[in-house]
């Protein structure tokens, strides 16, 4: 695996995504000229943060190979926001809400990592089961009702913006992506992730602690889901037990669209962020031209299939 080939492929992928995005925007503007307003960009970014964070986690897990996938991310976001708020309502210090979110999210992700690396369950089955456990718990514990009472000092994080850019996108999404890119490309740990995703056996032979790294990857993915939960709390002012619904589908669509190979070892975070923006632009645009939100699920699903159909040739190693 040559880094140059990666970069080249990543570059063309970014160009393709940019092209798609432009075509989409032009199409939307033609369909509804009123869409061309600065606040639309803010809206897109406002919706992007949660998907971006979750997709970054999904990227990490998938990159690490071993049939890695985290289907439970949506359930994790729901359950983390519910549990964190429940802790605060039960008398926990509200100042610690961000820490609660991060801690619970990482813990739930760590459970996945434990099941995958220590119990040796297939990631697909382990995280499918935890998706139903986490998502089910979030609904069952609350009876499907929101938990309100998010401290008011948190709401600027969720609703404020600086010259049109939502604060959470600026202070959470962008830095985590920068950090993710830095770790993946500049550190030994990042090299290990690519190495074990590319060829697990060789990675073991050269001494990479594959299980240790993988366990950490699932925990990090959960931590990012916890951050997404925090953003949702700050944004909506309450914990919604179904906030994470469909995030597993959306995040998979985003990372595959962004050029991450489903079998691991190839892809980067830049493409993923671009894909997230593309998906959210599409969704926001559809909403603007008054297409029911249930359609978004269908369109993201179709997008996922179309991208894979168009893209399966470079990723033949799977099947």
């Amino acid at each position: 695996m040559s880094a140059i080939a990666f970069a080249r492929r990543g570059g063309s992928k970014l160009a393709l995504l940019a092209g798609l995005w432009l075509a989409l925007v032009v199409g939307l503007v033609i369909a509804a000229p009123a869409i061309l307003q600065p606040f639309m960009a803010t809206t897109v970014l406002q919706f992007s943060t949660i998907l971006a964070l979750v997709s970054l986690g999904q990227t990490m897990v998938v990159l690490g190979g071993g049939a890695g996938i985290d289907l439970s991310l949506g359930g994790n976001v729901s359950l983390t926001s519910v549990l964190a708020m429940a802790l605060v309502r039960a008398g926990g210090p509200a100042a610690l809400l961000p820490l609660f979110c991060i801690g619970i999210g990482a813990l739930l992700g760590g459970v996945n990592g434990f099941l995958v690396t220590r119990i040796r369950l297939l990631p697909l089955i382990a995280t499918l089961a935890t998706l139903f456990i986490y998502g089910g718990l979030a609904v069952a514990l609350t009876g499907g009702l929101s938990i309100s009472g998010v401290p008011p000092w948190l709401t600027p994080l969720g609703r404020g913006s600086v010259s049109g850019v939502p604060i959470h996108f600026l202070v959470i999404a962008l830095p985590t992506f920068a950090l993710g890119a830095l770790i993946l490309t500049q550190t030994a740990w990042g090299r290990w992730i690519y190495a074990m995703g590319h060829n697990e056996r060789s990675a073991r032979l050269v001494g990479v602690d594959v299980d240790g790294v993988r366990l950490t990857l699932y925990a990090v993915s959960g931590l990012l889901a916890g951050l997404a939960a925090l953003v949702s709390l700050a944004w909506f002012g309450s914990a919604r037990p179904n906030i994470g619904q469909n995030l597993e589908l959306d995040s998979l669509a985003a990372i595959l669209l962004g050029g991450v190979s489903i079998s691991g070892g190839a892809g980067g975070v830049g493409g993923v962020l671009a894909a997230v923006l593309l998906i959210e632009t599409l969704k926001t645009g559809l909403q603007f031209v008054n297409i029911n939100s249930i359609w978004q699920v269908g369109i993201v699903g179709a997008l996922l299939i179309v991208v894979l159909l168009a893209d399966h040739l470079p990723n033949r190693r799977t099947s």
Partner: peptide, 27 residues
């Protein structure tokens, strides 16, 4: 057709179809 002819991994392909079908049911 999607999975076998399109050579898409089953889990991802059927996840995509799940979304499409869910929208179809709503429609």
């Amino acid at each position: 057709s999607v999975i076998v002819l399109g050579r898409i991994p089953a889990i991802v392909g059927t996840l995509g179809l799940l979304g499409v079908y869910r929208a179809a049911i709503y429609l």
